[in-house]
Design a binder for these strands. Structure first.
Length: 614
DNA sequence: AAGACTATGACATTCCAT
DNA sequence: ATGGAATGTCATAGTCTT
C-alpha cells in the first residue's frame, strides 16, 4: 500500500466482494440453479445493490452511494474478461438492450461510466413509468399504498402541485418532486424527515429507500410463521431468506424514522445478569416471549459494549429476548463484559467446581512478591487477541529504574495506565510482562495446553483464546441443562472457535452425543478435534468450515440423522463491534459481524424443522 | 512465506466535581 | 442535572525477522 493513501483516495482500497456475496445470499442464491438471470427477479437484485449501497452510506450522501455502486461493479468485474461485460450488467438487472447501448456509448474499457450511464437510463425509465402511474391512479399501487400505510396521518387528499405557487424553497422542492413522479404525500414525508435543507438527491434517496422496503413487503407478504414449515421445498426457504433480508432493511429504516430513540437498553451495574454465584442478587423468574421458547434451546453471545442500537437489533432478531449482560470478573480473575441471549431456564443454576482463582494474586501467586503497593489491581481487564510489546515493557522498566524507592505519581500513572491497557503483570523488580498463552487458557477455564502444539503459532493461540468464551461463565448458564438431558445432548455449535461451549458442557458432566461445529479457522477446528480425542468423547464430532454450507437441506439431513438438536450455541464475530477495532468498527453490518444474521437464519431453520418433525 | 512485532484512535460509558 | 475527565475495549495494517 502506498504511503499517501489516506484521505479520499478510496480507489486503492481493496474492495472485498463479501458484500456482494451477502446480497446474493439473501436475494439470489436460494434459486442458484438459475443459470441466466431473467426478468423481474433480477431486477430485484439491481435494486438490492442500490439498497445495500444506501445502507452502507446512509441516504444522505448520493455521491457516496454512487461510488459504492461503482466499487461493487468494479470488484465483481475485477476477475472477469470483457466478454463477460454484458452478462455482468444484465446480471445486475439491466436490460440487454440498455447494456449494449451503454457499452457502445462508453467503450468496453470504462465500466464505471457504463454503470453510471445505465443508472441514468433506469432512473429515467423509472421516473417515466412512475409519472404514468401517478397520472392514472394514486393509491392503488402496492408501492404507494403500503408506503402510505405507515403515515396515515399525512394528508394525501388533493393533488395541488400544479396550482402551487413555488415561492418558498420548500414549495419549489415539493413541486420538483411531484414533477418527477412522486406523490405529494411521499414528497412531504421525505421533506419532513430529511429536514428543510435537504437536497433533491437526498429526498429522492429517502423516498426510494422507503419504497424498496415496501416493495419487499409487496413481493413477499408476511405469512404466518407456520406455513413455510409445512413443506420444505426451496421456494419456502427462499422466502425465509428474503424475510431476513427484509427485516434487516426494515430495521434500518425504522431506526431512521424513529430518530434513534431505541436506546432503552442500558448495561446493568453491577453486570451480573440474572445472577452470579458470588453475589446475592439473583433473579430466578422471567417470562420469555412465546416465539422464543424451545425446542431447541439457544444461546447467543457477543461483546456487551457494542455500538449503539446493536443489542436492540440482536434482541429483536432473537425473538425479543432480553439480553443477559454478565462480566466474567465475577467468575474469574479477568473481566469480560459480554451479552448473552438465550432461552434457557434460569432457576437452579450451579457453577463449575472447583472455583477458578478470582483475583490476580490467587491466579498468579508468584507475582505477589514483585507487585508494588501502588498497583492496586485485583482483577485483570478483558483479555484480548494481542499482547503488549517488548518495547513497552522495556520503557516501563527504564522509567522505574531511575528511582530507588517509589516512583513519582506521574510515573506511577503512566505505568498503571499501560499495565491496565495491556494486562501486564509483575514478574520481577521493575519488570512487567504480558500473560503467557497457557495463563490465558487457565483464566478462561480451558484445560492447560488446550491451544498448544499441533502446528499452532503463538500469535494464533492468543488470537483464538482472545476470541473465546470464558468457560465458567458459560457453564453457569448452561448448567440447567444437566438435569434435563441426563443421557446427553445434541449440540449445534456455530462459530465454535476453540470449543468453549463444548468444553463447558463437558466440564458440567453433560455427555455430548452429537456435535456439529461450524468454524472457519482450520487452526481452531484442529484444536477442538484434538480436545475431542484427548477427552475420549463417545459421541460424534462433525466439523463444517463454513456457515454458508449449512443450508436447509444439510440441516435437515443432519437433524434426521440425530433426531434434532437440543441446543444451538453461537458467539458471532465481534470484530466489527468492539471498541478495540480502530479500522472497521462498522456495527452489525460489518463484514464479519453480519454473520450474526447467519446465526439467526440457521436458528430459524432448526426451529422450523424441529417443529415440523414433532 | 509465515510468524513476530509494533504503532495505530474512536467511541461509549462511567466517574466525579460542580 | 451536567459537562469534562477518566476509563476501557473478543483488533488491523504495516513492517521486520526468521
Amino acid at each position: 500500500m502506498n504511503g499517501n493513501s489516506c484521505g479520499g483516495d478510496a480507489d486503492n482500497f481493496d474492495w472485498d466482494t463479501e458484500d456482494e456475496l451477502e446480497i446474493d445470499n439473501y436475494a439470489i442464491s436460494p434459486c442458484s440453479e438459475v443459470s441466466l438471470p431473467h426478468g423481474k427477479a433480477v431486477l430485484g437484485s439491481a435494486e438490492e445493490l442500490v439498497a445495500k449501497a444506501i445502507e452502507e452510506n446512509g441516504q444522505e450522501n448520493s455521491n457516496l452511494i454512487l461510488e459504492t455502486l461503482l466499487q461493487y461493479s468494479a470488484s465483481s468485474l475485477a476477475s472477469s474478461s470483457n466478454s463477460k461485460l454484458i452478462y455482468h450488467f444484465v446480471g445486475m438487472g439491466f436490460s440487454e438492450e440498455m447494456v449494449l447501448k451503454a457499452v457502445q456509448e462508453n467503450g468496453e474499457g470504462n465500466t464505471d461510466s457504463i454503470l453510471e450511464t445505465l443508472l441514468t437510463y433506469s432512473a429515467l425509465e423509472k421516473s417515466a413509468s412512475m409519472q404514468q402511474h401517478a397520472d392514472s391512479s394514486h393509491c392503488s399501487s402496492d408501492y404507494e399504498g403500503s408506503f402510505l400505510d405507515d403515515f396515515s396521518d399525512i394528508d394525501s387528499s388533493s393533488e395541488t402541485a400544479e396550482t402551487m405557487n413555488p415561492d418558498s424553497d420548500e414549495e419549489r422542492k415539493l413541486l420538483y418532486l411531484t414533477k418527477m413522479g412522486y406523490s405529494k404525500a411521499e414528497a412531504s414525508i421525505a421533506m419532513e424527515r430529511c429536514g428543510p435543507d435537504s437536497s433533491i438527491a437526498e429526498l429522492t434517496d429517502f423516498i426510494c429507500a422507503a419504497q424498496m422496503a415496501k416493495a419487499a413487503d409487496a413481493l413477499f407478504p408476511l405469512e404466518d410463521k407456520k406455513p413455510f414449515c409445512n413443506d420444505s421445498n426451496r421456494k419456502k426457504r427462499r422466502n425465509l431468506d428474503y424475510d431476513l433480508w427484509k427485516r434487516r432493511k426494515q430495521m434500518k429504516l425504522e431506526k431512521r424514522f424513529l430518530n434513534e430513540v431505541d436506546d432503552a437498553l442500558h448495561l446493568p451495574n453491577p453486570m451480573i445478569g440474572f445472577g452470579v454465584p458470588t453475589e446475592s442478587d439473583q433473579i430466578t423468574q422471567r417470562t420469555l416471549p412465546e416465539a422464543a421458547t424451545g425446542p431447541p434451546y439457544f444461546y447467543y453471545e457477543n461483546v456487551a459494549l457494542a455500538p449503539k442500537g446493536v443489542w436492540n437489533t440482536i434482541s429483536r432478531f432473537l425473538y425479543d429476548v432480553e439480553p443477559e449482560f454478565v462480566d466474567s470478573k465475577y467468575f474469574c480473575a479477568a473481566a469480560r463484559k459480554r451479552g448473552y441471549i438465550h432461552n434457557l431456564p434460569i432457576e437452579n443454576r450451579f457453577p463449575l467446581l472447583p472455583f477458578p482463582p478470582r483475583t490476580i494474586h490467587e491466579a498468579f501467586p508468584l507475582t505477589r512478591k514483585w507487585w508494588p503497593s501502588w498497583d492496586t489491581r485485583t482483577k485483570l481487564n478483558c483479555l484480548q487477541t494481542c499482547i503488549g510489546s517488548a518495547r513497552l515493557t522495556e520503557r516501563i522498566r527504564k522509567a522505574l529504574e531511575r528511582y530507588d524507592d517509589e516512583p513519582p505519581l506521574s510515573v506511577q500513572k503512566f505505568v498503571l495506565d499501560e499495565c491496565r491497557k495491556w494486562n501486564l503483570v509483575w514478574v520481577g523488580r521493575n519488570k512487567v510482562a504480558p500473560l503467557e498463552p497457557d495463563e490465558v487458557e487457565m483464566l478462561f477455564g480451558f484445560p492447560r495446553n488446550h491451544t498448544r502444539g499441533g502446528g499452532i503459532s503463538r500469535t494464533d493461540r492468543y488470537k483464538s483464546l482472545g476470541n473465546s468464551f470464558q468457560v465458567d461463565t458459560v457453564a453457569y448458564h448452561l448448567s440447567v441443562l444437566k438435569d434435563m438431558f441426563p443421557d446427553g445432548i445434541n449440540l449445534l455449535s456455530l462459530f465454535s472457535g476453540i470449543g468453549g461451549a463444548e468444553v463447558a458442557l463437558h466440564r458440567l458432566g453433560i455427555p455430548l452425543k452429537n456435535v456439529v461445529a461450524v468454524e472457519k479457522s482450520e487452526v481452531n477446528r484442529n484444536i477442538v478435534r484434538s480436545w475431542w480425542e484427548q477427552t475420549n468423547q463417545r459421541g460424534n464430532l462433525i466439523d463444517i468450515p463454513d456457515v454458508q454450507e449449512l443450508n436447509g437441506d444439510r440441516l435437515e439431513q443432519l437433524m434426521n440423522r440425530f433426531g434434532g438438536f437440543d441446543l444451538v450455541v453461537g458467539g458471532s464475530p465481534c470484530n466489527n463491534l468492539t471498541g478495540s477495532n480502530r479500522h472497521h468498527r462498522d456495527g452489525l453490518e460489518g463484514k464479519d459481524s453480519s454473520l450474526f444474521f447467519d446465526y439467526c437464519r440457521i436458528l430459524d431453520l432448526v426451529k422450523c424443522i424441529t417443529a415440523r418433525n414433532q
